[in-house]
Simulated scan of single mutants.
Amino acid sequence: MLNTIIVDDEEFARSSLYFLLQENCESIHIAGIAKSVAEARGLLTSNTIDLIFLDIAMPGENGFELIPYAQAGKAHVIFTTAYDQYALKAIKANALDYLLKPIDIDELKAAVDKAEKYITLNKNENGRKESLQNLALNLSERNEIRKISLPNGQGYSLINIDDIIHIEADSNYSVFYLQNKDKITVSKVLKEYEEILPDNQFVRIHKSSIINLNYVKEYNSKNGLEVILKNGDKIAVSRRRASDFADKIKSYTSFDIDK
């Protein structure tokens, strides 16, 4: 039996993964469930853990910050993530494994089988550290991400990032405005998507707004710097983010915002 913990800030993700493991993976014993890296550290301290199903994007500390503690406890990691398969294809050889949300049962079984064989073979510590470090490095580049999974209450919506026009903060929620005129509200703060989305295409222009540069129609400084998007939405650029926006728009187009 593999002593296992689940680490994810989304209640639906935690409960659905728990159910899938209980129903499909006899070699797994769920030793604990955590909704944050801080809670996971406590579980690692009080239990001998073989395997961690670890979300990446979480408020406060992200999943990568748990890796040193996993290594210290000789626990192995399977990442659960909203990154698409194309982005992860290049780094799959360096990871113990990963699961793309929403989790597929067959992929889950295959990942658990791989983990069981890997742990049984007892690969050396240095090899495991190098694998996790390479995964963290490659994922952090975020250059190939083309899709993200957005929790919608009953499951997940898989969204092409090119279809995102802009994202607006609403307290502790983020509202996605999509090319097909749909809106999706997600119970995550804007900063998490600022970190996930490729910064050569998406720029935070205000504490409450991230825009997709593909949808910029025009910008002007008549009443302070303002961006007009192709769907007609007008969004203010805050003073402290104006310089970063200017740099991004210059590199993205042939126009000079200062002219």
Rank of each mutant, 00 (worst) to 15 (best):
E39R: 15
F19W: 11
T4W: 01
L178Q: 04
V77Y: 05
M58C: 14
L88N: 08
P151I: 03
K191Q: 15
S27M: 06
R14E: 11
K230I: 09
K89M: 14
K191C: 11
S46Q: 15
V77P: 05
K248C: 11
I257H: 12
N47V: 02
L197A: 04
L158E: 05
L20E: 13
L44I: 00
L197Y: 05
D104E: 14
A115E: 03
A236R: 12
I28H: 06
G155P: 04
G63M: 06
Y219L: 08
H76P: 01
L17D: 03
L150Q: 02
L229D: 08
E218A: 13
R14L: 12
K183M: 12
E26M: 08
Q154S: 12
N94K: 13
N220C: 14
E10W: 07
L2Q: 09
R142K: 15
N122K: 13
D84Y: 01
V227Y: 07
E192R: 01
A95L: 06
V7P: 07
I67T: 07
K117M: 10
D163T: 00
I33F: 05
T80C: 07
V227D: 08
M1L: 13
A75W: 02
L96I: 01
Q201M: 08
A93N: 15
Q154M: 10
D106Y: 15
L190H: 01
K234F: 10
N62T: 03
K217D: 13
P59M: 05
L139S: 11
E23M: 12
H206N: 10
A75I: 00
I164W: 07
I148C: 02
R240E: 09
A31L: 00
P68F: 01
D233C: 05
G32R: 03
F53P: 00
N134H: 09
D55Y: 13
V77N: 03
V175S: 04
S36A: 06
I196C: 12
D55P: 14
P102V: 00
D106G: 15
K183H: 08
H29W: 08
V77Q: 04
L88V: 02
V37R: 09
I33H: 07
E11F: 03
N152H: 00
A93V: 15
Y177Q: 04
N212H: 11
E195Y: 14
